[in-house]
Computed example of a mutant assay.
Amino acid sequence: MLRIHFADADLGRTRVATRPDPLWEIAASLHRLQSRKGGWAFAGWSRMARQQLREKGLERRVREVLLRLYPRAEYFPDFLTPSNALHGFEAGVESILATPPQRILQEVARLDRTVGAPAWVGRLAEPAMRRELVDLLRAYHEAVVVPYEDEVHAKLEAERAARCRGILDGGVEGMLTTLGPMMRWRPPVLEVSYPTQAPDRDLYLRGRGLTLVPSYFNWAEPVAFADPQLPPVLWYSMLHEPPAEGGDGAGKPLTALLGRARAIALYATSAGATTGEIARAAGVSASSASRHATALRDAGLITTVRQGPAVLHTLTPVGAAMLRAAVRGAGPGLA
């Protein structure tokens, strides 16, 4: 559990990123290659990524270099995902190149203590080695992240729209209450379900505010910098809807339990959704979406409030717990 402590000043300085973080998407996509969790959501990307890495001759270097630097574990070095990457890929890699050698050595030593690291990792303190790493990151990014940029941007805009709705309804605190299913706002603390192997810790914002960065490739593992002195940033996953019946996610437990349309409706309401938005997400008529919402509401999984001519459906604590469990325990895929 990560507990992020807000002061009054932090609420006014909290924002949602306006663009994806390319270096974090690299890190999170490498984690997808190391895990079966969420495989149903990334099966198509996984096939494409593995084919691209083979065709471009990157498989060995990714396996021997990147997967060792970005282990799916409780820690990987903070300098690999600098906050400047929110300004774009080139800004991010410039920050990597400019990282002080002493900081790199400290973070590499922590990586070695946590999960082990090959001896060559320490040489990243040398500028020439970091330039080689940046060249590999660029090749990997162009091969397996850039092909999905349009989809990533589209999901980010949808996520920002949902968060803006929370701000309009209840200010920043109202927005923080809609961040489930992996986060829970208990004023003045945002409780974040951290990777299970990571120890519990507290992050005090102390007037710096928090930058929330929705991530396409992150899967149910919100992450902040390990160093509390760095700018407060929280990367968290954008939910992926269950795929069409007969696709890569057929038989997924939540879909099997609720049916595909109601499972999608439950996912959609995690960010707050109108009946029309549920209908579009599930590919059903408005009347069918209304019936699905009614069934979920009668089961105590969602709640509904009227906003002018429309109604807004949001998760209840029971619905959030069900979705949180489904995200954590998503079945095996191809990663």
Rank of each mutant, 00 (worst) to 15 (best):
M1H: 02
R3K: 14
H5A: 13
F6C: 07
G12I: 09
V16A: 02
A17C: 11
T18D: 14
R19E: 14
R19C: 07
D21N: 04
W24Y: 15
E25A: 06
I26K: 01
S29V: 05
L30D: 03
K37F: 13
K37H: 14
W40Q: 12
F42K: 02
A49G: 00
L58A: 09
L58W: 08
E59G: 10
E59C: 07
E64S: 09
L69C: 03
Y70F: 15
Y70L: 13
Y70Q: 07
Y70M: 12
A73N: 06
A73L: 08
E74A: 15
Y75A: 05
F76L: 01
F76M: 00
D78P: 06
F79I: 04
L80F: 01
T81P: 03
P82S: 04
S83T: 12
S83N: 07
N84D: 12
E90Q: 12
S95R: 03
I96P: 07
L97A: 15
P101G: 00
Q102T: 08
I104S: 03
E107T: 08
A109T: 11
R110A: 06
L111M: 07
L111Q: 03
A117V: 06
P118S: 00
A119Q: 10
L124I: 02
L124R: 06
A128P: 07
E132Q: 14
L133F: 00
D135I: 08
R138N: 12
R138K: 15
E142D: 15
A143T: 07
V145F: 10
Y148G: 00
Y148M: 15
E149A: 15
E151I: 13
K155I: 02
A161I: 01
R165I: 10
G170V: 01
G174T: 02
L176S: 03
T177M: 13
L179I: 03
G180Y: 01
G180Q: 00
L190G: 07
E191K: 02
V192D: 03
V192G: 02
S193K: 05
S193P: 04
Q197E: 15
P199V: 08
D202E: 13
R206N: 15
R208P: 07
R208Q: 09
L210T: 06
L210D: 06
T211E: 13
L212K: 00
L212H: 02
P214T: 10
F217K: 05
E221C: 03
A224K: 01
A224G: 04
F225D: 11
D227R: 00
Q229R: 14
L230N: 10
P232S: 07
P232K: 03
W235V: 08
E245C: 13
G251F: 10
A256S: 12
A256I: 04
G259M: 08
G272D: 00
T274G: 08
T275S: 11
G276L: 11
I278D: 05
I278A: 06
R280F: 13
V284G: 01
A289P: 08
R291C: 09
A295H: 05
L296G: 01
R297W: 04
D298R: 15
D298N: 12
Q307N: 13
V311T: 08
L312Y: 11
H313E: 02
H313M: 05
T314D: 09
T314E: 12
A321D: 11
M322W: 06
M322T: 07
L323Y: 00
A326G: 08
V327W: 01
V327D: 07
V327N: 04
